[in-house]
Simulated scan of single mutants.
Amino acid sequence: MTPAINVARKQGITHHIHQYDHDPAVASYGTEAAEALGLEGNRVFKTLLVSLNGDARQLSVAIVPVTRQLDLKACAKALNAKKADMANPKDAERATGYVVGGISPLGQKKRLPTVLDSTAQEFETIYVSAGRRGLEIELAPNDLMGICRAVKAAIAR
């Protein structure tokens, strides 16, 4: 059981857990999840951390499809910041309580401002990390946004 799964259960939202054998040699955790679960890559979302306005302590979460890249300018705008940069992986792990490749937007140690790419609304359910490599949680985009208090914006390119 991970904090992400515990949060989904506690909130009483409909969700499904999907597990697969993670290959430690893989370069793209999100693509691995999509392929292992036989899913379209645009339905599987990766959780990325960004630092805002050049401040490594001002972290936020961006959730985008694994088939696309994060548009840092669009992300900054969605989070009312002047600038966004990818966060240092160690800072991301410290802030969330998860390891890179298994960072879930749910159940993080500290609630961070969160933005979900608007393409998530194209699907009844999407997949995000459930808190460790090889484990995904499937849930409705609106449920994810509600739990994370996320805003929706076009942040992927």
Rank of each mutant, 00 (worst) to 15 (best):
residue 116 L to W: 00
residue 116 L to F: 04
residue 116 L to P: 03
residue 117 D to E: 08
residue 118 S to D: 14
residue 118 S to I: 09
residue 119 T to A: 06
residue 119 T to V: 08
residue 119 T to P: 04
residue 119 T to L: 06
residue 120 A to S: 05
residue 120 A to C: 04
residue 120 A to R: 02
residue 120 A to M: 02
residue 121 Q to W: 04
residue 121 Q to P: 02
residue 121 Q to V: 03
residue 121 Q to E: 10
residue 121 Q to G: 04
residue 121 Q to C: 04
residue 121 Q to K: 11
residue 121 Q to S: 10
residue 121 Q to A: 09
residue 122 E to W: 06
residue 122 E to A: 13
residue 122 E to P: 03
residue 123 F to E: 05
residue 124 E to L: 01
residue 124 E to R: 02
residue 125 T to M: 01
residue 125 T to I: 01
residue 125 T to K: 00
residue 126 I to D: 02
residue 126 I to S: 01
residue 126 I to C: 03
residue 126 I to G: 00
residue 127 Y to F: 14
residue 127 Y to K: 08
residue 127 Y to D: 09
residue 127 Y to T: 10
residue 128 V to Y: 01
residue 128 V to K: 02
residue 129 S to L: 09
residue 129 S to W: 07
residue 129 S to P: 08
residue 130 A to H: 07
residue 130 A to G: 15
residue 130 A to P: 06
residue 130 A to R: 04
residue 130 A to Y: 05
residue 131 G to R: 06
residue 132 R to A: 09
residue 132 R to H: 15
residue 132 R to G: 07
residue 134 G to K: 08
residue 134 G to T: 09
residue 134 G to E: 12
residue 134 G to A: 11
residue 135 L to M: 15
residue 135 L to D: 06
residue 135 L to T: 11
residue 135 L to F: 07
residue 136 E to H: 08
residue 136 E to R: 10
residue 137 I to P: 01
residue 137 I to E: 02
residue 137 I to H: 04
residue 137 I to D: 02
residue 137 I to G: 01
residue 138 E to D: 07
residue 138 E to S: 06
residue 138 E to G: 05
residue 139 L to P: 03
residue 139 L to R: 01
residue 139 L to N: 03
residue 140 A to L: 02
residue 140 A to G: 03
residue 140 A to P: 01
residue 141 P to D: 03
residue 141 P to M: 03
residue 141 P to Q: 05
residue 141 P to I: 03
residue 142 N to D: 15
residue 142 N to E: 11
residue 142 N to P: 07
residue 142 N to F: 09
residue 142 N to G: 08
residue 143 D to S: 03
residue 143 D to K: 00
residue 143 D to M: 00
residue 143 D to V: 00
residue 144 L to I: 02
residue 144 L to H: 01
residue 144 L to M: 04
residue 144 L to Y: 02
residue 144 L to G: 00
residue 145 M to R: 08
residue 145 M to L: 10
residue 146 G to R: 12
residue 146 G to S: 11
residue 147 I to H: 00
residue 147 I to T: 04
residue 147 I to N: 03
residue 148 C to W: 04
residue 148 C to M: 12
residue 149 R to E: 14
residue 149 R to T: 14
residue 150 A to V: 11
residue 150 A to Q: 10
residue 150 A to M: 13
residue 150 A to S: 14
residue 150 A to N: 13
residue 150 A to C: 13
residue 151 V to T: 14
residue 151 V to D: 14
residue 151 V to A: 15
residue 152 K to S: 15
residue 152 K to A: 12
residue 152 K to D: 10
residue 152 K to E: 14
residue 152 K to R: 15
residue 153 A to E: 07
residue 153 A to V: 07
residue 153 A to C: 11
residue 153 A to M: 06
residue 154 A to G: 09
residue 154 A to R: 15
residue 154 A to T: 13
residue 155 I to M: 12
residue 155 I to F: 13
residue 155 I to V: 15
residue 155 I to D: 07
residue 155 I to H: 10
residue 155 I to G: 08
